[in-house]
């Protein structure tokens, strides 16, 4: 269906360009398409620089019960609103045998607060017992189709994506949260059960990918 839609979009694109002779075509310009449920983690052997100075990969960080990947950063108010819960859910998941990696793919030249030293401070301040690592080319985020922070991807014990989306349903008011989507998904993965809600959405800060470097 996606393919058909894309093809249609391309045809429409051609028509649109012909009709209005405009420099750009509007229509549907949504962000990168995120990994589909059931997919395995892409770029699992790409080196990510953790806040402890060591190099890690998603493959080495994977847990026996599953792997939880957060795309986060420091500057984003939505991340700030959720970060205590991100720490709690991440730490709890790790203690249950789930590998946990928080990835910052933002270009720090766009957001100085997202630089490595600031990441080290933030991880310490929040008591992350899991990796908080730099995606130095933003290519891991691109490969995941991650578009904003925070955005969560949870893989089960067999390495398949079983949850994608938000931490819970209320960033701003922790006391008003009705659905703890991620926590429930982690508990399901640890128990080897199906995840109750597999895809959710929340507003977030667009990830500022680093420019592609010529190679």
């Amino acid at each position: 269906m996606n393919h058909a839609r894309r093809t249609l979009a391309h045809v429409t694109l051609a028509l649109g360009l012909a009709m209005v002779a405009a420099p750009a075509f509007a229509q549907d310009d949504s962000g990168p398409k995120p990994l589909e449920l059931g997919s395995t983690a892409p770029m699992a052997t790409a080196a990510l620089k953790n806040v402890d100075g060591k190099s890690i990969t998603l493959a080495t960080a994977a847990g026996k019960k599953g792997t939880l990947v957060f795309f986060i950063c420091n500057h984003c108010p939505w991340v700030k609103a959720w970060q205590t819960r991100i720490a709690a859910v991440g730490n709890a998941a790790r203690s249950k045998g789930v590998g946990v990696v928080a990835i910052n793919a933002n270009d720090p030249s766009a957001y100085p607060e997202d630089g490595y030293a600031e990441m080290q401070k933030r991880a310490k301040q929040l008591g992350y017992k899991f990796a908080y690592a730099v995606d130095p080319t933003s290519d891991v985020a691109r490969a995941f189709g991650a578009s904003h922070t925070p955005e969560v991807f949870l893989f089960d014990a067999s390495g398949k994506l079983v949850y994608h989306g938000a931490v819970d349903d209320n960033a701003h008011e922790p006391k008003s949260v009705e659905h703890r989507w991620l926590e429930e998904a982690v508990n399901a993965v640890v128990a080897g059960k199906p995840v109750p809600v597999a895809e959710t959405k929340a507003l977030g800060c667009g990830i500022k990918y680093r420019n592609k470097t010529a190679s």
Binding site: S30, G31, H148, D169, A171, K201, A202, L203, G204
Partner: peptide
């Protein structure tokens, strides 16, 4: 000022929207 649950707000305006702004 947005005053709605995020997921409902996003999907009502466009299910293809990831939630990223602007």
């Amino acid at each position: 000022l947005k005053h709605d649950a995020d997921q409902r707000f996003i999907d009502t305006l466009n299910p293809a929207w990831s939630g990223s702004i602007p």
